[in-house]
Nucleic acid binder design. Sequence first.
DNA 1: ATAAACCTTTGAGTTAAGTCCAAGGTCAAC
DNA 2: GTTGACCTTGGACTTAACTCAAAGGTTTAT
Lengths: 134, 134
Amino acid sequence: MYRIGELAKLNQINADTLRYYEKNGLLKPSGRSASGYRVYNDADAQQLRFILRAKAIGFSLTEIQELLEIDHNRAQWACQDVKGMVEAKAVLIQTKIDELVQFRDSLQHLADACCGGPESAEHCSILDALEANS
Amino acid sequence: MYRIGELAKLNQINADTLRYYEKNGLLKPSGRSASGYRVYNDADAQQLRFILRAKAIGFSLTEIQELLEIDHNRAQWACQDVKGMVEAKAVLIQTKIDELVQFRDSLQHLADACCGGPESAEHCSILDALEANS
DNA sequence: ATAAACCTTTGAGTTAAGTCCAAGGTCAAC
DNA sequence: GTTGACCTTGGACTTAACTCAAAGGTTTAT
Ligand SMILES: [Zn+2]
Ligand SMILES: [Zn+2]
Ligand SMILES: [Zn+2]
Ligand SMILES: [Zn+2]
């Protein structure tokens, strides 16, 4: 049995984050104390670790909500569904990677063409490229 | 001489975006008509293209503001400064790429271990991995 | 008995880069 | 002389995931 600050500290997150997760349906404490304090049990703590692990892998909170629903009703879902989610996410990430690689390469091109010297930038090829009218 | 809607259409952006750029010090129209309409001249239009080009390469509006300041005062800056900005940005992008590649690989690992079959997810290795206590 | 450290709720603020709305003024065409 | 397309301003809203503040109640230790 943990109070909010305790559970937060154990997982190195902010107590406010736990309240936020509760408000957004990700983790509801199993009970409340007589005075109204949130009380989390071990199952709650395990679910929090599930959430944090999924987040670390890169899932959004919305996606984690879906994963939790599947996890809580495993019998009603197929491996297909779960694998599908993960693979769709992988494709999205790959797209993002491709974009960033393109971006990095354009920057590298610009930088390579610039002398990088200490004299005035009046002839700078980077600025010229940005100013170019084509 | 362009009015706001005209310049926006020519550059395939929203007129609101031009007002936003003005509010944020990126592009001030060189004049106003008698009735208060914004009036952009060719230099304004060229600066807008500078902004859009830099944005397409991946610079943030804040960074573009810095680039504009350098561009407007080229004599007071060195190629070093400009090249430094671009290279710093490239390093940042590379870091992001590395993170995403890691993320993609974790997802791939998870997906590879899952059978992906149509039967119940009660044995799903992906969910098990997220639930794992280690 | 009182101070420190905890907890409660509600509600607002943060970042980035816009987008949308309402209420009204202006300009060209028919 | 009236549509319709355009322009003005100010301010609210959007996404994601928190984070903080205010004003007050509870627990624990001294
Ligand atoms: Zn140079
Ligand atoms: Zn240069
Ligand atoms: Zn399976
Ligand atoms: Zn599976």
